[in-house]
């Protein structure tokens, strides 16, 4: 498998009234045809990683370093026309709140057609035809009449389907999904996840799926990357991580899952709050909340350890006593 996306040593810093080191050295690859789940709590940097990939972060207030390569294109070097051609065609994105991510004063059909015309330079009629096809692909009932509908006239689930139709209308190689099911209720959530799985196979896309919901991540991902404090603390095949999480944070996350917990007992929680990222972490950012913290965790950043093929963990404990030379 060749890598479609290669992110290495990505750093993102927001400057302004307050400096925030949102991403602190992320290395990530996305392979052809796979779905990568990006799991983490609010402020862990998962959405920022997605936005860096599409260069959606506000230029004036953001400092990005490192490298992002998509299909051997240097994304950080893209600009102007090349950048907007890349967006929506090579990589496209769906959002958490379809009600807010669709323009309220344009019909669904014209918003899809607009994208198609932009990237394929076809006529309005052809673009409308594609819009209709796409609404059928995402299984919106009576698609033809829904083309003229405005976002506020659709239900939440239908809106997200329309958003997916829009994102896939130019057959992108990579789909970025930013918590697309968070704003939906549970039954609709499952429908959308199943639809995404199916479309991913049908379109042969790779997907990066950001979520804070372990249940959703398990449902959709082939591979999982767990983020904390702007770093990836653990990544590997989904099954391996679920079966044997190696990073204390991942263990804590899985332990606090309400589904497996016996009734009448208090849920396990991770004590404390996420780290304040006003400086680059100079030790393990999880140390303050870690159940198995050691002295060295507070002194220097932990190494990234490959504990098995494709399984990476950023922790001293996984490195054992003498393997701290990895990073």
């Amino acid at each position: 498998m060749s890598a479609l996306v290669e992110i290495s040593d990505l750093h993102v810093r927001f400057v302004g009234e307050r400096t925030v080191h949102a991403i602190n050295g992320v290395d990530l690859t996305l392979n052809a045809g796979e779905t990568l789940g990006l799991l983490g709590e609010s402020g862990s940097g998962k959405s920022v990683t997605l936005r860096a990939l599409l260069r959606l972060l506000p230029k004036r207030r953001t400092v990005i370093s490192g490298s992002i390569r998509v299909l051997d294109q240097d994304v950080l070097a893209l600009d102007g026309e090349a950048l907007s051609r890349f967006r929506g065609r090579t990589v496209s994105m769906i959002f958490q709140e379809p009600a807010l991510a669709l323009d309220p004063v344009y019909s669904i059909g014209s918003q899809i057609a607009e994208t198609v015309m932009r990237h394929e330079g076809c006529s309005r009629a052809a673009a409308d035809q594609r819009a209709l096809e796409m609404l059928n692909v995402v299984r919106i009932p009576s698609a033809k009449s829904r083309l003229a509908a405005y976002p506020h006239e659709l239900s939440g689930g239908m809106r997200q389907r329309a958003m997916i139709a829009l994102a896939l209308s130019c057959k992108p190689k990579i789909l970025l999904a930013d918590e697309p099911t968070t704003a939906l209720d549970a039954t609709v959530q499952i429908q959308i996840l199943l639809l995404l799985r199916e479309l991913q196979r049908e379109f042969g896309m790779s997907v990066i799926f950001v979520t804070h919901d372990i249940g959703v991540a398990v449902e959709i991902s082939d591979r999982l990357a767990v983020m904390y404090g702007g770093q990836i603390v653990e990544q590997g095949a989904l099954r391996d991580i679920i079966r044997a999480p190696s990073h204390p944070y991942t263990r804590g996350l899985l332990g606090s899952n309400a589904h497996a917990a016996p009734k009448g007992q208090r849920l396990e929680t991770i004590p404390g709050a996420p780290p304040v990222l006003d400086a680059v972490p100079r030790a393990c950012p999880f140390a303050a909340r870690c159940a198995v913290v050691e002295q060295r965790c507070n002194l220097q950043p932990p190494p990234v350890v490959e504990i098995a093929d494709g399984r990476l963990t950023r922790c001293f404990l996984a490195a054992g006593q003498d393997a701290s030379a990895m990073n």
Binding site: L56, S84, E97, L100, A101, L102, V105, T115, R118
Partner: peptide, 25 residues
């Protein structure tokens, strides 16, 4: 500052095309 503007950029709209959406809104 609304989400749909970011979404417009994300789907590859040019600055002038985004402007059209802003004006209509």
């Amino acid at each position: 500052s609304q989400d749909f503007v970011e979404a417009l950029y994300a789907k590859g709209m040019r600055q002038s095309q985004v402007f059209r959406h802003v004006v209509k809104n």
